[in-house]
Structures are given as C-alpha cells and as structure tokens.
Amino acid sequence: MIDFAKDLRLWFSPQRVRDEGETPDYRFSLANERTFLAWIRTALALVGGGFAVDQFLPDLRWGVRVGMALALLAVGAACALRAVNHWVRCERAMRRGEDLPVSRFPVVLSLGVGLVAVAMVLVVLLGWTDRP
C-alpha cells in the first residue's frame, strides 16, 4: 500500500521519473506505451461489457443483471488504473536499469473474467430469468 502511494505521487510528478537514471532507447519506451494502450483497450472492453450486460440481457433478474454489470465495470476501472500505474513503474525501472516489475494483476483479472463467465453459464442453466 505504501508502494502504491509512492507510485501515485509519480503519476502526477513526471519530473521525478525523468530525474532518475538514464533515458532508455526510445523503442523500449514505445513498447511500454503500446503495452499501456493494450491494457487501456482491455479496460474499455470490460466497461463496454458492463454496458452490454445491462442492455442485451433484459431477461435477467434486475439484481443479477446489475450485479454482473457492476462487477465488469469495477474490473474495467481497476484495469485502467493498473494500466497507468504499471506504465509508470516500467518506465522508472527501465530508466534505473532494473528488472521490470512483476505483477499478480493478470492472474487476478483472468480469474475474475473466468468467474463472471462461469456465473453467466450458471445463470442461464438455472434459468434465473424473468421469462417464464
């Protein structure tokens, strides 16, 4: 949590990143930028999935539908925050010549998406819909 607070300060004070270490080869920074954008697209897809659950599954019960949509939206927001955090950390590690940061987030995200998918299958199988 303390590490996260430090990273948070880095987001808003670019000079602090620039002051450290040496500027890496610009192609490494561009690769880092593309990774950031890929995570942003993942976040957008999850947010879009939240909208889609609410709009295209009208037969689901209100609680199930809204709960599922909120779960997807929350994961999407977390994904966007994590994207910028990971980008800053990678950029700093490259400047310092350290190893790139490792993260549990991909595993957590995969498990979360898997859980939502299994929940959808169960909902359909058990027929928790308003339609008789």
Partner: peptide, 9 residues
Amino acid sequence: PVLGERAAL
C-alpha cells in the same frame, strides 16, 4: 519523445 504523463492520465 516518451509518452507524456498527462496523455497517459
């Protein structure tokens, strides 16, 4: 140049 923090944020 490197992506600016403002653009990322």
